[in-house]
Simulated scan of single mutants.
Amino acid sequence: MTRPTDLLPEGLEDRLPASAARITHAMRACLEVLHQHGYDRVRPPLLEFERSLASRMRGLRTQAMFRFVDPASLRTLALRSDITPQVGRIAATSMRDAPRPLRLAYCGDTALIRASQLDPARERLQLGAELVGADTIAAASEVVMVAIEALQAAGLSGISVDFTLPDLVDTLAARDGDTDPDHIAAVRRELDTKDAGGLRAVGGATYLPLLYATGPFDSALAELRDYDARGALSTRLDGLEAIAGRIAAAHGEDVRLTLDPTERYGFEYQSWFGFTLYCDALRGAAGRGGTYRIGGSEEAATGFSLYVDHLAEAAPEAEGGRVAYLPLGHDAGTAARLRAEGWRTLAQLGEGEDPGALGCTHVLEGETPKELEASQ
């Protein structure tokens, strides 16, 4: 019976064994891919000074974080909502003298004061990689392809990559000599809502073609090139085309490529390049990434983040494996050998236990595990 005191806050939940196993399997698979590609794992603390977190990424909102006063220093602490700024701090401080490009990986819990309607979870397991010290097509391509490989290793299929240009409006406004921040903000707002009428109403008619330069990558890119007759976006579009070409060469039709140049949700601090990852059977995005500058050092970096507890919803169920039931009085050496060989073991603690009901597949008889049905 659930008592009122047993209820969890909105947006938080317990992960029971089956769900926790899927998350753990996906996490290990993704981290192994990052390790194989040379990304070294770091583990920043769960809490930091609010001012430090806010200074590392442009657009990071500490108002979305749980904050409280540190009794030791009397300064404001924040519970992280995003690990990427912490990795940026590490790269700019403790590892500032490490050779570049610097490849770092991470995995840890994050929390939000309020969740969005699209994603009601307030606690998330964030996993990702950051490539620091390189702002090149090769660096961007590597990050996207490592992210795709990580999703595939976790068992996800039907992967698609949706490219965007986070600083698109700023670039076009500079082209047109538009320095009015209110007008630029209004144009962004209407592009975010894909509202053609609203865009005209705020004096953004010249941006209307951007609403239609979306969809399959090749056709959307062609639309953007036609729109960009004055060449303000040429280097960015050339870069996108090169990245897409590398992905297509590596994955062919197994990975779908699309383009939505005005998409800004989730790209608060990215610069010229951003991407969102989607998978079949998964509601919402599987992850996001892109290029950015680390606050303080202004060093270029490219990275991606996956929320493992979310993507594990579509990952295949982790196999339980072989579980050997160890009767009372079993040989401890034999049990240790089985575990070294990859078995899980469950020791009997009292009379009347049911090995099958406890999830066992075998029962240890002497030095040999026997299939449960065969042994009964």
Score class of each variant (00 low, 15 high):
A21N: 07
D97Q: 14
F275M: 05
L358G: 08
G296V: 11
D40Y: 11
L8T: 12
D182A: 14
R80E: 04
T110F: 05
L208F: 02
T93I: 02
R67L: 06
D280P: 01
T214Y: 06
G108S: 05
L104I: 12
R3E: 15
R339K: 14
D309S: 14
D254W: 00
A340F: 01
G329H: 03
R89E: 03
L77T: 04
A249W: 02
A332H: 04
D331N: 15
M65L: 13
D40I: 15
L358Q: 09
F68W: 12
A98G: 05
A147S: 14
L172G: 01
R80A: 10
M65Y: 05
P166C: 09
L79K: 03
R100H: 12
D176H: 12
T302W: 04
C107V: 13
A318N: 08
A250H: 11
P166L: 04
Y292H: 10
G352C: 03
M145A: 11
H183V: 08
S81I: 07
R256S: 14
R3G: 14
D226V: 14
R293P: 01
M95Y: 13
V146H: 02
A336C: 02
R41P: 01
R189T: 12
P71I: 10
A248F: 03
F267P: 01
A242G: 01
M95E: 12
L211S: 07
E351D: 14
I23P: 01
E241F: 00
G128R: 01
E268S: 15
Q117K: 14
T93S: 14
Y106A: 02
D192Q: 14
E48K: 06
D40N: 11
L12F: 15
T76H: 00
G274E: 02
A105I: 06
M57H: 08
L224V: 11
D176T: 00
D195G: 05
Y207R: 06
V202E: 01
F163R: 02
T214R: 15
A205C: 00
Y292A: 08
P316K: 00
A250S: 15
G108Y: 05
A336F: 11
L79D: 07
E319L: 09
T193N: 12
A249S: 12
R3C: 14
P181N: 10
A173S: 13
L47V: 13
A147F: 05
A26H: 06
R230N: 10
V146T: 10
G333A: 14
R122E: 04
